[in-house]
Nucleic acid binder design. Sequence first.
DNA 1: TACATTTGTATCGCACACGATATAAATTTG
DNA 2: CAAATTTATATCGTGTGCGATACAAATGTA
Lengths: 154, 154
Amino acid sequence: MNENLKLEQQICFPVYSVSRLITKAYIPFLKEMSLTYPQYLVLLVLWEYETLSVNSIGEKLLLNTNTISPLIQRMEKAGLLKRERSTQDERMVMVKLTSKGKELKKKASPIPEKLLKTLLTDDVQLADVILVKDMMNKWIEILSENNKKNQKKD
Amino acid sequence: MNENLKLEQQICFPVYSVSRLITKAYIPFLKEMSLTYPQYLVLLVLWEYETLSVNSIGEKLLLNTNTISPLIQRMEKAGLLKRERSTQDERMVMVKLTSKGKELKKKASPIPEKLLKTLLTDDVQLADVILVKDMMNKWIEILSENNKKNQKKD
DNA sequence: TACATTTGTATCGCACACGATATAAATTTG
DNA sequence: CAAATTTATATCGTGTGCGATACAAATGTA
């Protein structure tokens, strides 16, 4: 049989699985704040930048606007943020945290540390995690560059 | 500001993004076979094992049966496989490739190599990819073990 | 100023992913 | 053997993720 097609040989599958498992590991913490994982990501960038357009949130999270748009609408319904059309350029919708959204930051602050702890063991050192993080960031550049090229082909 | 909550500091986000980007990188190849990425994963294990129960496919792919079940039903509709209730244990549904499903293996065989090539650059060596793969497999063990523990708490 | 193009956002449809629940068959236990 | 429990699968509802499409505002151009 073609060894290349064995599940164990794939690089895609471990990354795919770890991604799902990490998201799952967040759930107990996020549940306390009634957040989903992508909603938490949106909050991460808004805690950092205060006000952003729908488009720029998508750019930072590498998500298309057709994913961000309903996501943000649900978050507005939950009272976490406000959407307001820009007066300078009426095509843009600016997103801003409400006080409720800002409040959650305190509750969220211990999460990254806790998540890291679940991962660190005799077999996985902090240096390994940082190594993987740096590697993943390189891959993101390559893959998203490649992605743009493929879209241009059409 | 709490540095821990900056998007750039997260380990989760790069993994999450790479996972989506890799899946996206597969799409041009899978499109030619009218497959989605999770459907491709199901084929990978069936090409390796010929016949498997719904449950054991889920175990290999770390997916719940409520994800696998409709996935396999769609694949049956597409004529890639057959579902057949086991006569020994009527609770089990055995999944078996059709000739059409087996045929696709030839077409798929160059895919892993091609995917790898899109990733390899001056900045990313084969050794790095293998390193990440091994690391991810360690993480899977830790995270899925942890996951089981959390479920027991309920 | 009219018209075409670009840009930012929203909508639609499909395919996961998964918790909760349902159902039926098999197994365990009193 | 009957009842309770476990096991295997399916169904339902919610939330992404994304390609395709729609649409309105802004911009460029003749």
